[in-house]
């Protein structure tokens, strides 16, 4: 018994203390996967804020955009041109979603729209397989001049190994978030987005066009999906299995709140770091592999205490 308690409450911290370089390495890896979770969650938050739709298709949008990029390149389109074309494809997708799904379903209950995004998911899976085939593809990291290799940084009496691609991912994600934050807070379009999130009828009365706003948020979510797809694809490869990472965004959203951009970022990092630390220090006790479910447990515990998330708006219903 004492043996068990020791290995849960004492031993992991002893390990952290005796090998701080390993701790730093684990934290860094947690941070990197956290940033990627945050990017996916960000795509959800953008759409949820502006249209109240939980977009189940965000995961497949990541896969679809990455496949488009790689597929175009395979057909001889230069990498950067392929990237530009992928952006165009996501813009077309945003227009199509607005015209075909959102506009006819306006004023329907949220659950209907949620189901519609399920439909969109399976449509995109089918379309993707039809065009690009079902085999995993390798991300065109070299053609896009993404940095390869890694740095070994001496730290805390040991080394911390940092993949250059991870550093790039973190920098790019931070830049995207900063750009979105400026747009949301300083510009007309950002204000219009927040306005639509607060009150549809008031937004309409000042001349904001809902259709235009929806296209913009879906396009923004599409661009976030491209960035996620490239970064994630470069770490593993591009396949439909990636779609499952959309489910990883759920605990992040529960933690950060569905309507908060900073929440998505911080939630993502907490989940990412929590997973890696849990796996490394406590995983062996349970025969490893706890990384795949730990996030949901963290989210569940969190729900008990703060159902609206870290930064979400508290919803007070009038009875």
């Amino acid at each position: 018994m004492t043996q068990l308690l020791y290995s849960i409450f004492v031993d992991p911290f002893v390990q952290m203390g005796t090998a701080p370089d390993l701790l730093a390495q684990t934290l860094w890896e947690g941070l990197v996967s956290g940033v990627l979770y945050a990017l996916i969650a960000l795509g959800f938050v953008l759409i949820f804020k502006a249209s109240g739709v939980f977009n189940f298709a965000q995961g497949i949008m990541v896969v679809f955009s990455a496949l488009t990029l790689v597929g175009l390149n395979e057909h001889g389109v230069p990498a950067y041109l392929a990237l530009a074309l992928t952006v165009v494809v996501m813009l077309v997708l945003a227009f199509a979603v607005e015209r075909v799904i959102l506009r006819p379903l306006v004023n329907q209950p949220d659950i209907i729209l949620f189901m519609a995004t399920f439909g969109l998911t399976y449509f995109l899976i089918g379309l993707g397989e039809l065009i690009f085939g079902g085999d995993p593809k390798v991300m065109i990291s070299d053609q896009l001049r993404l940095p390869g290799g890694s740095y070994r940084i001496p730290m805390l009496g040991g080394y911390v190994q940092m993949q250059k691609i991870d550093i790039a991912a973190t920098v790019i994600a931070s830049l995207m978030v900063a750009a979105l934050a400026v747009m949301f807070n300083r510009t007309r379009i950002g204000r219009a987005l927040r306005a639509v999130a607060d009150s549809h009828k008031a937004a309409l009365s000042v001349g904001i066009s809902l259709e235009q706003i929806w296209v913009i948020v879906w396009f923004a979510a599409g661009v976030v999906a491209i960035a996620t797809g490239i970064m994630w694809g470069a770490r593993s490869n591009v396949s439909f299995a990636l779609e499952i990472i959309a489910l990883k965004a759920l605990p992040v959203l529960i933690l950060g709140g569905f309507t908060s951009i900073p929440g998505a970022i911080i939630g993502g990092i907490i989940i990412g770091v929590g997973e890696k630390i849990g796996e490394f220090y406590w995983g062996p006790l349970l025969g490893s592999g706890i990384e795949s479910w730990l996030a949901y447990v963290i989210a569940l515990v969190f729900l008990l205490f703060r159902p609206q998330g870290l930064f979400g708006e508290r919803i007070i219903e009038r009875l």
Binding site: T187, R188, D198, V206, I208
Partner: peptide
């Protein structure tokens, strides 16, 4: 029907949406 999460200033700025003409790229 106000934008509850926004400040008074931002609410009023929203009223001027249609008077603003800069394009999406410049906004972004």
């Amino acid at each position: 029907a106000l934008f509850r999460g926004m400040t008074v200033l931002d609410n009023l700025m929203t009223g001027r949406t249609l008077k603003m003409t800069s394009n999406f790229l410049e906004q972004a």
